[in-house]
Amino acid sequence: MAKLLYITANPKSDVKLSKGMQIGEAFLEEFKKEQPDIEIEKMHLYEMEIPEIDMDLLYGRAKLSFMGYTFEQLTVEEQTKLKKMHALADRFIDADYYVFVTPLWNLGSPSILKAFLDNLFIVNKTFVNKEHGPEGLLTNRKAIHIQTRGGIYSTGPMVDFEFGDRFLRKALGFLGLEMMDTVVAEGMDHFPKQAAEIVAAAKGKAAAAAREMARAKMEVQ
């Protein structure tokens, strides 16, 4: 059975309060029409305990990668945090499709998303280093980003200041995932009277993207 991992980075727990999650739900509804048996796992990052790269994780990884330590020789703190990191990465690797729903805050995504992504960059697990450079191992997987923006970043003077979608696409592509075109709903703060119309249009784009993703021929992991 194929599995879809639905990841949201928004402190709002009520879908009614989040335009991004409303668009995300439209994506899921359409996807389920195409693949009724799809298993959907939801990760609300603000409700999770996500390991952050601190001194324990920094040195624990270094000891294992090039300092000659075995896992048993690490401190209890290093072992515990590395286990949590690998457990989170394993949950991610277990999926076939990925949907990220995030807002654009202060030119980038919420910091909790960066903390989450830091747990996925594990050499020989999600990528390998080869003579020609790093190579992602999470191939034969599709991902899409649904992003809401209060301002306008697709055209005009702010184009070069959007780092949320740009970073996420590069990070996931580095790991080997195939990225679909991002579904963007922007300008809600600039044009509040048009917010409902903007969200409705984004829901339509999300539904179309869901059909495309669900119909793509992929080998189930």
Score class of each variant (00 low, 15 high):
3 K>C: 01
4 L>Q: 02
5 L>I: 10
6 Y>Q: 03
7 I>S: 03
9 A>F: 10
12 K>Y: 03
17 L>T: 12
21 M>K: 15
22 Q>L: 14
26 A>D: 13
27 F>I: 14
28 L>N: 11
28 L>V: 13
28 L>Q: 09
29 E>H: 12
29 E>V: 12
29 E>F: 06
30 E>W: 05
32 K>G: 08
34 E>D: 03
34 E>Q: 15
35 Q>S: 11
36 P>M: 12
47 E>A: 14
52 E>F: 11
55 M>Q: 06
55 M>E: 10
56 D>M: 13
58 L>S: 13
58 L>Y: 15
64 L>C: 07
64 L>D: 00
68 G>M: 11
74 L>M: 10
77 E>L: 12
79 Q>V: 04
79 Q>E: 09
81 K>T: 10
82 L>P: 02
83 K>S: 11
89 A>Q: 15
92 F>C: 07
94 D>I: 00
97 Y>G: 00
99 V>Y: 04
103 P>S: 10
103 P>A: 10
103 P>W: 07
104 L>F: 03
107 L>F: 14
108 G>F: 02
108 G>L: 02
110 P>V: 05
113 L>H: 03
114 K>P: 00
115 A>T: 09
117 L>A: 12
117 L>D: 06
119 N>C: 09
121 F>T: 12
123 V>Q: 14
124 N>E: 13
127 F>Y: 15
129 N>G: 02
130 K>C: 11
133 G>A: 06
135 E>A: 09
137 L>M: 13
140 N>R: 01
142 K>N: 06
143 A>Q: 05
143 A>D: 04
143 A>W: 03
145 H>Q: 11
145 H>V: 15
145 H>G: 02
146 I>D: 11
149 R>H: 11
149 R>P: 02
154 S>V: 00
154 S>L: 07
155 T>R: 12
158 M>K: 04
160 D>W: 01
166 R>Q: 08
167 F>G: 00
170 K>G: 01
178 E>P: 01
180 M>E: 14
180 M>W: 00
188 M>C: 05
193 K>D: 15
198 I>A: 00
198 I>Y: 01
198 I>C: 00
200 A>C: 05
204 G>K: 11
205 K>A: 14
205 K>M: 10
207 A>Q: 15
208 A>F: 09
209 A>G: 02
216 A>Q: 01
